[in-house]
Amino acid sequence: MTTETDPVLAEDPITGEEIELPADVEVGEIIDSPVTGTELEVISLDPVTLEEAPELEEDWGE
């Protein structure tokens, strides 16, 4: 059984290694891969799946 404070595990889509995510991870959240430093996007939570995040685009910002 998992709790809200348990870390979440997911597969790094680039290296295939298992990585640890914050317990309160959100769909759409960007995670820096602890293995490669690549930005990864959380695609789903059940199960937790990650994809390489989109590259920065020119109109991004605030």
């Binding site: 309160d24 959100e26 769909v27 759409g28 959240e29 960007i30 996007e41 959380v42 995040a53 989109p54």
Partner: peptide, 15 residues
């Protein structure tokens, strides 16, 4: 409305 959840959005969602 979002396309990427940054720390800012997470703080907002949490609140």
């Amino acid at each position: 409305l979002y396309s990427r959840v940054r720390r800012d959005e997470k703080l907002l969602l949490e609140e």
